[in-house]
Amino acid sequence: MKRELNIPVLQYPWPTIPAPYPDYFAKEEAGWLDADYTFMAEEAVRKYKGHCLADGASYMAPTTINIDHLRPMARFFLWLTLYDDYYELWPVKRLAEERDRIIDIMLGESPKAGDIGLYRQAAIFRDEFLSFMPYEWMERLAKSMYRYTTYGIMEEHRYRTEKRFPSILNLTYLREYAIGMYPYGDLVEPGINFALPRYIAEHPVIMRLRTLLCRVMFIQNDWYTLEKEMAEESEVCNMILALRHHHKISLEEAMEEARRMHDEYVKEMVGLQDNLPDFGDHQKAVENYVFHLGLNITGLNDWYNAMTVRYIPSEFAWHKLKQ
């Protein structure tokens, strides 16, 4: 099952550290899918088992060697991906209701009898994270989930249902949120076993680094998912396809323009990482945190190219999710 498009590998100034447990969670992931994702079609679940989603966490957090810390990250990687696949085309009003219930569970409520497994898995990763992370961090993760769902998935909905490309400017902001990297970026902290104090997490430089992480990652995603999304024909929220559409240029020219945008975001990230403010007693911890933002990027870059078959058109599983 090879790709037909020749997609060059994106390059970064940060190191790529080999994942310490590249396939550790394969059996556990299959169990999670069989236990709590039965609301999806059997064929979709079968394909998901081959996508190595849970092991993506090992690639994005390659210095996390404590399995009990890595497990909720792996569980969340799978959960967030299937959350996106499942809810992507739901009516906005219904999705808002689902969003609010999920967030309530992340903040402490219990799933109800009859809830689909996404709710149960959210309660499980919540409890796993809170065994070693402060509740304030969980509140931050819940807020990121709200923003991702509301300003990402729900904002993209009208363009997808109308099969209409957003403007390049609008798409830039939509993809920043819709890529899911605001919530997944929060997992850098449990990965290094350090929760940023609020005044640091909300510092403009740290917030800008988080924005740049999302922007680098959305282009990385749109880059490596290009073949799958071209096969869909109706895809309107891929930056490369939007650039080709709006600028009336070739696919190759659109890819080069997307790479230019990507490299500018990387350059700004490096500039901020090299010139951090003075965070006093937390300086070393913050430097380690921003270093791991870079490892998130290179780790996922490695996962796209070495581990998963998720984005090969023959492995297309989503949009056939309900029984």
Score class of each variant (00 low, 15 high):
D274H: 13
I219V: 15
G191L: 12
E97G: 12
A285M: 14
D55N: 14
E88I: 11
L276F: 01
Y151A: 09
Y159F: 15
A317R: 03
M1R: 02
E315T: 03
P13G: 07
A26H: 13
R94P: 06
R101C: 00
M261D: 10
A19E: 07
L276K: 01
E227T: 05
D104Y: 06
N296R: 14
G152D: 04
Q121Y: 03
K320V: 02
E155H: 05
E229I: 05
K49V: 09
F76H: 05
L241S: 03
N305V: 09
G117F: 05
R75K: 07
E128Q: 12
L212A: 02
F77R: 06
G117H: 03
M239P: 10
E156V: 05
C237W: 08
E315I: 04
N193A: 13
P183D: 05
V45S: 01
Y87M: 00
T172L: 09
N170A: 15
H262Q: 01
Q121L: 12
N301C: 14
R160G: 00
M106R: 04
F316E: 08
S167F: 10
Y173V: 09
R164K: 11
F25K: 06
K27M: 05
K112S: 00
Y199V: 10
M40Q: 04
L107V: 14
A123N: 00
M207Y: 13
E257V: 11
F39T: 05
Y48C: 09
L82K: 02
N305C: 07
G185Y: 06
Q323H: 08
Y151P: 01
E189V: 10
